[in-house]
Design a protein around this nucleic acid. Structure first.
Length: 216
DNA sequence: GGTCGGATCATCT
DNA sequence: GATGATCCGACCG
């Protein structure tokens, strides 16, 4: 019932978004915290494997430059094979494996050779929800829908995002980000980033308040 | 509701 | 050899 209503609205949402151009380089080539904030409400669309899945971005984190000690490209680490995409042009995907288990998607921001990116931490599922369920729980033991995409590893699994997409241009299929309805400031909460051990008080996490899809 | 530990491995020292 | 931008299930209360 409620599930059916949501799916109908979501399909219309995505069809409408289909006429919209993806976010362009100028969007990403700005201050990383601003990009992280402005990505809230945007729509991440995957057609990986020929199956369309999409969700609205409701939680992000910014990782900003060599002086951000929590960044994979912090000064003490420098440029390495893994973080190479963080130095690429704005609008590039940086996808890495965490804990040997999960994939995480970032959008590269700011200027070439300045390593900065926005981690996409949670989505509100909009399209292809049954496909997401199958990818998240391939043994058929489905969990609740609110756990489909309420975390960076979970949304990557639901949208079939893997390391094969590291370095991908996010203006193009099979993984694109389209502009969405702007989330009002009153609905945006800013706070410390999650799961890090350095710079734990930097307020670079942005999420939509009262959203069941936010990780916490 | 909460806390805890294991999974699992690429990456870097 | 240690670490980690996570997730999940087990266990406790």
């Amino acid at each position: 019932m409620e599930r059916g209503r949501k799916r109908t609205r979501s399909a219309a949402d995505v069809r409408a978004a289909g006429r919209v151009r993806p976010l362009d380089r100028r969007f990403y080539a700005r201050d990383t915290a601003v990009v992280a904030r402005e990505l809230l409400g945007a729509v991440l669309v995957s057609t990986v494997g020929g199956q369309r899945t999409a969700g609205r971005i409701v939680e992000t984190e910014a990782y900003i430059g060599p002086h951000d000690p929590a960044s994979h490209a912090a000064e003490r680490i420098g440029r390495t094979q893994r973080n190479t995409s963080m130095f690429a042009v704005a609008g590039t995907a940086y996808v890495y494996r965490i804990y040997g288990v999960h994939w995480c998607l970032n959008t590269v921001t700011a200027d070439v050779d300045f390593p900065a990116a926005v981690l996409v931490r949670a989505l509100e599922p909009l399209h292809g929800i049954e496909i997401m369920r199958l990818r998240r729980w391939p043994d058929g033991a489905y969990g609740p829908d609110r756990q489909l995409t309420n975390g960076p590893g979970k949304l990557a699994a639901a949208l079939a995002i893997t390391g094969a997409l590291d370095g991908h241009d996010l203006r193009k299929s099979p993984l694109r980000i389209l502009p969405g309805e702007r989330v009002a400031d009153a609905r945006v909460r800013t706070g410390p980033r999650i799961g890090i051990t350095r710079a734990t008080d930097w307020p670079l996490r942005f999420c939509v308040t009262d959203c069941p899809w936010v990780s916490r």
